[in-house]
Amino acid sequence: MVSKFLFFLAFVLLAHIVPGQTIYPDNQIPSNTPKLFGKGVLSDGLSNRDFTISPAGDEIFFTLQQPRFLNSTILRMQKANGKWGKPQVAPFSGKYKDLEAFFTSDGKSIYFSSNRPVSGTTPKKDFDIWKISRLPNGHWGTPMHLDTIVNTDKDEFYPSVAKNGDLYFTVEAAYGKGKEDIVMCSPVKGGYSKPVSLPEAVNSPNYEFNPFIDPDEQFIMFTSFGRKDDLGGGDLYISHKDKGGNWLPAKHLPAPVNSAGIDYCPFVTRDKKYLIFTSNRANAEFSDGKTKTYQQLKNILASPGNGSDDIYWVKFDCNW
């Protein structure tokens, strides 16, 4: 039987965002070859990255960034009366640099990274992890800065939360194993336990970042840059747990999931049918050997695949 979430994803593809325009023009769900997710809406030639969707399937959050990280804003799409609206600035974003929203499994809270000030109005020089919860009226409340056990004077990025509240994120830590590490801390009374760097099965002397934790903590997907099997600017990897609860050596996801560009910001749907991720892989038209007119060049450069970040999805393979 087709799951409710699969029906939802099919609806995302078919639903009209504006008259005459669908999120995915060819109305096909992906196979083993990545396809643009929300072409013309979530992937539109601008730099759109990271992705999370509410458990109810009625809210999508993703990030719109400007070149050279001049700005970074979390956008939201909402479904009302069976139809998806256009992307809008999230109610808790727009003033500071915000990115990488992540829904908790119950849909009641969102974690995200931001340089917003803890006090005053001057943005921080580093990025911290914040949490915002839904109010009884359904609106989002006021963002809460996580305690100093989690947040330091270094950048904390890409929060991902398991069902039991274990928090995974990226940090450049003195206790780490490489240039950037994936770390985990558990909820305790009054806050969190001290973050612990994941073992060498996950972390290496290179860069590991953007962890997505399976809600049941049976696998973790992340990006690493600098490994020998890296195809480009950073590739996706996955590590599973064995029966004893130990992380197994991470596997490199095959092409065409990984590419010569940077492939990062993984998100696996709750039914584990699809992987949604960000990539700056280039459109094949750039290297097809054909002479192009000025207008053709403008059209390619204004479309997804122009070298900016786009959001893709692909069939999730449990054997990765």
Rank of each mutant, 00 (worst) to 15 (best):
R134C: 05
L135W: 03
P136K: 08
P136I: 07
P136A: 09
P136Q: 05
P136R: 05
P136L: 06
N137A: 04
N137R: 07
G138F: 12
H139L: 14
H139W: 03
H139E: 15
H139M: 14
H139C: 07
W140I: 03
G141I: 04
G141F: 08
G141R: 02
T142W: 06
T142D: 13
T142F: 09
H145R: 13
L146V: 08
L146D: 10
L146F: 14
L146Y: 14
L146A: 13
D147C: 11
T148C: 00
T148S: 15
T148M: 11
I149P: 03
I149W: 05
V150Q: 03
N151Y: 13
N151I: 05
T152F: 12
D153R: 12
D153G: 04
K154L: 02
K154W: 01
K154G: 03
K154F: 06
K154V: 04
D155W: 12
D155K: 04
Y158T: 11
P159F: 03
P159N: 11
S160A: 13
S160T: 13
V161M: 05
K163G: 00
K163Y: 00
K163A: 08
N164E: 10
G165W: 02
G165Y: 10
G165C: 05
D166F: 06
L167H: 00
L167M: 09
Y168I: 06
Y168D: 01
Y168K: 07
T170Q: 15
T170N: 12
V171R: 12
V171I: 13
E172D: 14
A173V: 02
A173N: 10
A173F: 03
A173I: 08
A173E: 07
A174G: 11
Y175K: 13
Y175V: 10
Y175S: 15
G176I: 02
G176K: 09
G176A: 07
K177N: 11
K177T: 10
G178F: 07
G178P: 04
K179C: 01
K179D: 08
E180I: 00
E180F: 07
D181I: 00
D181A: 03
I182C: 06
I182M: 00
I182K: 04
V183Q: 07
V183R: 01
M184A: 15
C185P: 07
C185S: 14
C185K: 01
S186F: 06
S186A: 14
S186D: 05
P187K: 06
P187T: 04
V188N: 01
K189F: 09
K189Q: 12
K189W: 07
G190I: 03
G190H: 12
G190K: 01
G191W: 12
Y192Q: 03
S193L: 09
K194N: 04
P195D: 11
V196I: 15
V196E: 15
S197G: 09
S197M: 04
S197P: 11
S197A: 15
L198D: 04
L198F: 11
P199I: 09
P199L: 08
E200Q: 10
E200G: 09
A201G: 13
A201I: 01
A201N: 14
V202G: 02
S204Q: 01
P205H: 12
N206L: 10
N206Q: 14
E208I: 10
E208H: 12
E208A: 14
E208Q: 15
F209K: 07
N210P: 01
P211T: 05
P211Y: 11
P211E: 10
P211G: 06
